[in-house]
Design a protein around this nucleic acid. Structure first.
Length: 336
DNA sequence: TTTCCATGAGAAT
DNA sequence: TTCTCCTGGAAAT
């Protein structure tokens, strides 16, 4: 159940660990065999993330990066383009893109030798917050006589496996894993709203998309065509921090408050991208060290700020949490 | 051992 | 609105 910060974190990790390298791509499970064949032995030259979609751009191993913009930036080993961090216009043409959506249970697990920095698993379901991101221990510890790291056997249903000389990334349980061309990639971008973690994320775009809808703000924040990357935790926490009731209609939330929510999400999700975990509580509000959230999964417990009992309800079949005192009810609740 | 559930989203009804 | 799919950890039995 990774939210957008995880995908951006993954895009950065893939750039650092695989960027510029020729990658061996396979599908141990078999369900991605045809797609893997299309990029097996190709070079990772670009990464991108938008909302909960991860894109890895591959070029033929001996081709330079096609576009003018990319020249000199992604031609040698270890070099690549991180598109989410750049403005529009830097996208190389002619790449084959691996598009991955982790859905409910997808995760990437990394392993590698000590040179392959930071083996870790990102996006794994049910990860307890605060738990250190940690990968599988290498099966083969480096030994004194020069035996190096060995690629471990796939563990579980590995849909896709990416291998470079010094490390491996295994993908399990994605809801989407496919090879797309640049046109299909652009179609994905087109149906997504602005992403607080992208360089081209535009707060006014977000505001105007929300203000057009007579739907609860809690529902709109989960709609990827309104704002991309926000999931159930960031939705609940951002509304709490802005003191907005989840059922207030988007059209009734003042633009200034929406801007506040956006900028708060930029800060919270950037922190999540940097640390790998979602922490939304201010330090002085924490009563225990692991009080990472104000309302998410805290129904029945006291509000960290006012001691009111946190409540929950279903909104579009997803649990939504709020504090009835910090987030006052709207004058009239939206009809379910 | 089995059941339940989850940071998701698209299709079917 | 309900169903469905992908997986695995925790809770329930």
């Amino acid at each position: 159940m990774p939210e957008g910060h995880v995908l951006h974190r993954l895009a950065l990790a893939f750039g650092e660990l695989f960027g510029g390298h020729v990658v061996e791509v396979s599908s141990p499970q078999g369900r991605f065999a045809a797609g893997a064949e299309l990029i097996d032995g190709w070079r990772l030259v670009a990464t991108d993330a938008h909302g909960k979609h991860l894109f890895l751009g591959f070029a033929p191993p001996d081709a330079g990066v096609a576009s003018e913009a990319a020249r000199g930036e992604a031609t040698g080993a270890g070099e690549y383009i991180a598109l989410a961090q750049q403005g529009p216009g830097a996208e190389p043409a002619g790449l084959r893109w691996l598009r991955v959506h982790l859905g409910l249970y997808g995760s990437w697990t990394f392993d590698g030798d000590p040179e392959f920095h930071a083996p870790h698993s990102i996006g794994a379901p049910r990860r307890r917050v605060g738990e250190e991101e940690r990968g599988l221990p290498s099966r083969e510890a480096p030994s004194a006589d020069g035996d190096g790291w060995q690629v471990p056997e796939p563990r579980g249903q590995v849909r896709a496996r990416l291998v470079v000389g010094h490390g491996v990334a295994d993908l399990t349980g994605p809801s989407a894993c496919e090879i797309v061309d640049v046109a299909a990639k652009h179609a994905v971008h087109a149906r997504l709203g602005p992403d607080p973690l992208r360089a081209d994320g535009d707060v006014e775009d977000f505001v105007s998309r929300v203000r057009r809808r007579r739907r609860p703000i809690g529902d709109l924040l989960m709609d990827q065509s309104i704002i991309a990357g926000v999931g159930n935790i960031y939705r609940a926490e951002a509304l709490y921090r802005a003191r907005v009731h989840p059922w207030r209609l988007g059209v009734n939330v003042p633009p200034a408050r929406l801007r506040e929510i956006w900028h708060d999400l930029v800060a919270l999700m950037t922190d999540g991208m940097d640390t790998g975990e979602i922490v939304t509580t201010d330090p002085h509000d924490r009563r225990e060290e692991n009080d990472h959230w104000y309302v998410y999964h805290r129904s029945g417990k006291p509000c960290l700020r006012c001691d009111s009992t946190i409540v929950e309800d279903l909104m579009a079949n997803r649990r939504v949490f709020w504090c009835p005192r910090e987030q006052r009810r709207p004058p009239r609740r939206a009809q379910a």
